[in-house]
Structures are given as C-alpha cells and as structure tokens.
Nucleic acid binder design. Structure first.
Lengths: 199, 199
DNA sequence: TATTACATACCGACCAGTCGGTATGTATGC
DNA sequence: GCATACATACCGACTGGTCGGTATGTAATA
C-alpha cells in the first residue's frame, strides 16, 4: 500500500497528475485509472479525495487559477510607468510558461469544457474578466499620466491578453524560427509603442 | 425513409451537421447518433458515407481548411500595398466569422485532437504554415518596397495570426464593450502602424 | 439487375463510479 | 501503558449503462 499522506498534500499530488494526463489525452480521453497510475495510487483513493471526474476537473481549474493570481498582484511597483509594469507581467507570464507549459496547454481543454458547462464557463469568464480589468486599469492610468494616447482601454487590454494567448499556439506547433521570449517581447512592444504618446 | 441524395451532397450535409454537434458538445461528447439525428438520417447511412468517427472528423478538418483557402488566394489585388492586402484579409476573416462562428469555434477542438493525433497535427501544422507563409511573403514584399521597416517577418506574421485567433476568445466569452470589427481593425492597425516606415 | 443510398436491430468493449473491506492514525478513558 | 472507539486514507474487483461500430435487409436509381 502507498504511504499515507494528509489529504491536503495528496489532493495536490492528484491535481498535478490530473494536469499531466488531461493535457496529454484531453479531458474525455483521460481515464481515472491513468491519473491514478501516474502516482501509483488506487481508484478508491482518488474517489476518496474527489467526488467525480468533473469535480476533479473543477478543482484543477481552481488550482490553475491560483497559479495565475500572482499576475493580478503583479503591481507592487506602483511608482513605475504602466508600460514597464505591463512588460513585467508579460515577461513573468512567459517565464511561467517556460517553467511548466502544461499550465497553458490545459487552457484549450478548459475552453472546450466551458463551451458545454455553464458553471465552468462562469469560472473562466471571471478569471478573464479580472485579468482584463487589471490591464484596463494600467492602461487608463497610463492615459491619465500622459504616457499613452487616448485609446479604448478595454480593447487594448484584450489585445494584450490575446497576444499572451498566442503562447499556447506556440507550445502546440513549436515554430523554430524564433524563441518564445522574442515573440512576447516584440508583440508587447508593438502594442505599447502603438499606444504611446508620440514625442 | 429520407429522400435519397448523391453521395457528394449528402457528405457535405453530414459534415455540416457534424460541425454543429462537434462545436456544441466537443468531439468526445458528440455522439454519432446526435449527428445523424440533426439531419434525420440513420446511423447506417452515416457509416455508409464515413468509415469511422475519426474519419468523419478528418473529413471535417479538410472541409474546414477549404473554407479558409480563399485567404491564401486573397491577393488578387497584387498592385496594392501590402498593408491594404493584409487589412483586406483581416476584414475578410472577420466577415467569415460573422457568417458562421462555428468554423472558428471548432478550432480549439482541432487543437485538442492534434495534441494526441500525429496525422491531424500534421494537417493543422500544414495549414498554419501556409497561412503564416502568406503573411510573411506580404511583409517581406512590404519591406522591399520601403513600406515597412526591416522587421522579422516570421514573427510579425505570427502576431497577425494570433490577433485573428483572438476572435475565438471573442466568440466564447462575448465581451459586450465593443464589436468584433472594431477589435480586428484596431489590432491590425496597431501592428501595421507599428512596422510602418515613419514619415 | 447491379449498385448505391438508406434503415433497423444488434453487439460488445470500455470505463466512471461503487462498495465491502483493510490499514494506519489519533483521541479518550482507565 | 494499553485498550477501546472512531476517523482518515487507501485498495481493487465488480457492474451497468453507454456508444462506436456491424450485420442484414430494403427501396430507389442507373
């Protein structure tokens, strides 16, 4: 029998295995047995910690959102210009991605699920709204301080977010012509220069 | 019994029903019976036209790629500056999207499948490569004619593509603050102005 | 009449979830 | 120290519904 562990630890271990399997096979093709096998646990144990497959997936999404919450708090450096903060967030995101691409590769899976499950759609919407809001605030701030032109902040925020989303495509189809960092840097500068006040 | 039809017509009808169902439920949750029911056909009929579920999905991807091939040929207007051609393609894509968002909403499903199926991954890679290539050629041309700065055309091409991909996010989470057209226009202008030669 | 386009009834592998049970804590009373 | 009682963590054989796929038959068409 496997070594006993407190529920809090075991749950995280299971969530990490689930992430691996869900990314590799997709939610529907992923077998509860696969997840359990990944860490040498039994099915009974899994169902001791999670009620159902869907329940496990929801817990994974919550865990996933936690990974990205540092972004929301990424503005310790309030004194700096918005441009630098945004660039910092972008670099931070790229670093997160390098460390564990799986955290990004689940996203299409979450989208797919959100498309047929209201509760999950609302969870995802909530996260995106808060990320978008963070960028909007930064841009609005930049406009007020004369750093940016008077642009539509909601739209620019979305441009930034979809640019960062481009990383997922990057991970899937791995173009070899250039690096992820180059891509993110260039994209961000393109947007930020584009909305900067001309001198 | 349903009215008989030549195979070529029926196949397309089935593919369209499959698109609807695959988008609504996702590949794995989609039932062959769902697809058949959508057009009042029988399961036997479906398996007369397609060998398997996977075969049907592959045929759908091929059909899907056909929808986007006009983009590849979108350069009838060779005389015009690259900027205008790219803007034209973007508007064309947005129009395609408006007409039938499902053609875009299957994409995550295709990504997910590509992640666990080599053949499909290669099909998708091929399409993306050709789309990227088209943009690269346009940008390179723009650079040669002194329209654009000497940028990395591969990366800019990817920026354009991921911007257009942003439409999928748009379809899923429907932000109400602004329209799809506004979003696409702004994004394209941001990129194109960003790489334009300053005057 | 041969072929194509369909319908219907059926098969069986597969897998999420169940359940009876075991093993390892840990708290309480004596 | 050591029962007793209860809780938590874990095991794995089993099942029942589901659904991709098939076998077989029939009507239309060429």
């Amino acid at each position: 029998m496997t070594e006993r562990r407190p529920s809090s630890e075991r749950r995280i271990e299971i969530l990490e295995a689930a992430l691996t399997i869900f990314v590799k096979k997709g939610y529907s093709e992923a077998r509860m047995d696969d997840i359990v096998q990944e860490i040498g646990l039994s099915k009974g144990a899994l169902y001791h910690h999670f009620q159902s497959k869907r329940d496990l997936f929801i817990a994974l999404i919550e865990h996933w959102m936690d990974q990205f919450s540092p972004i929301e708090r990424g503005g310790l450096m309030r004194a700096k210009p918005s441009r630098e903060i945004i660039l910092h967030i972008a670099k931070f995101t790229a670093k997160l991605f390098k460390r564990n691409p799986n955290w990004f590769l689940v996203e299409p899976e979450i989208w797919a699920f959100a498309n047929r499950d209201k509760e999950i759609k609302e969870m995802a919407s909530h996260l995106y709204a808060s990320v978008l809001n963070e960028f909007e605030v930064l841009i609005k701030r930049g406009i007020e301080y004369g750093e940016f032109r008077d642009v539509n902040e909601a739209m620019i925020a979305m441009s930034i977010m979809t640019s960062l989303h481009g990383m997922i495509w990057f991970a899937l189809f791995k173009p070899s012509d250039f690096s992820l960092e180059e891509y993110v840097d260039l994209n961000m500068e393109l947007i930020l220069d584009g909305i900067a006040v001309q001198d």
